[in-house]
Write a protein that binds this DNA or RNA. Structure first.
Lengths: 131, 131
DNA sequence: CTGGTCACTTGTTTTTTACAAGCGAATTTC
DNA sequence: GAAATTCGCTTGTAAAAAACAAGTGACCAG
């Protein structure tokens, strides 16, 4: 996951930020909450994540146990990325961030229907029954 | 605050990360939630924020309307930094981050008594009646 | 066999961060 | 009253990370 000595302190908040405190990790998690799962899906999101950063973050998120990489076809082998339960449990964090921005910024777009009321369990169910 | 064109996209989540998506901003907000208000207080926190980064983040947080800088003495002029209502409203975000880490990491320390049940209003009250 | 897609990797430049030192105003120590 | 110390920063500079651009290998389609 991440060795103790690489955290800045044992404070849970700073530990959280050591894992996902950057501009891109939660954008990828957001995409996965919306049902995206392929490298190209993430790459084509509006924010325009650089491809090397995307590859790096997917590696890290997997290392941290937030996502799982699994192959969904052979010839050529292709992978998809799915939220683990730990990853799905970040949903309340995303929801609070969205609520915060919505309160103070009128120019942001609406999250998709149901996003603010969804539960981590819903993401796990969706994961096992991809549409 | 931050001009529209500097955001990566109009998505509320990515906007939130454009404002506070880094390793230090929320550590400073956390300190302020715990009643710290002076430059030196932040500087001496366990995580050991570099002083130039601290100065930079305080400037940014003020620019974003998350904190307020005000002088509390003359000769020499000294400043303290306080959460605005917008800043206090980040508390639920911090709380969710802490809950998330606590669920998956047994080695993190406990947040102070009452942290997880506090409300943004409590921080504002505390602000006007410093102990 | 030519071209295209997908999922990346590999340079290289630019930006950000980290670390160390310094500084001005004032206050404290001797 | 001179010297040292504190506070709240700023200014270099080196190291790390991010951004940008191009390339690669496996496959498929025509």
């Amino acid at each position: 996951m991440k060795s103790d000595s690489t955290y800045r302190s044992p404070c849970p908040l700073s530990k959280a930020l050591d894992l996902i405190g950057d501009k891109w990790s939660l954008v990828i998690v957001r995409d996965m909450c919306m049902g995206k799962s392929k490298y190209g899906d993430f790459q084509h999101s509006d924010e325009g994540i650089p491809t090397n950063i995307l590859a790096n973050r997917l590696r890290q998120l997997e290392e941290f146990g937030i996502i799982e990489k699994r192959s969904y076809q052979e010839k050529p082998t292709r992978y998809e990325y799915l939220l683990t339960r730990k990853g799905a449990d970040l949903l309340p964090v995303l929801q609070q961030l969205v609520l915060w921005v919505q309160k103070y910024d009128n120019d942001c777009i609406e999250p998709p229907e149901g996003f603010l009321t969804a539960l981590p369990e819903d993401l796990m169910a969706q994961r096992d029954n991809p549409q």
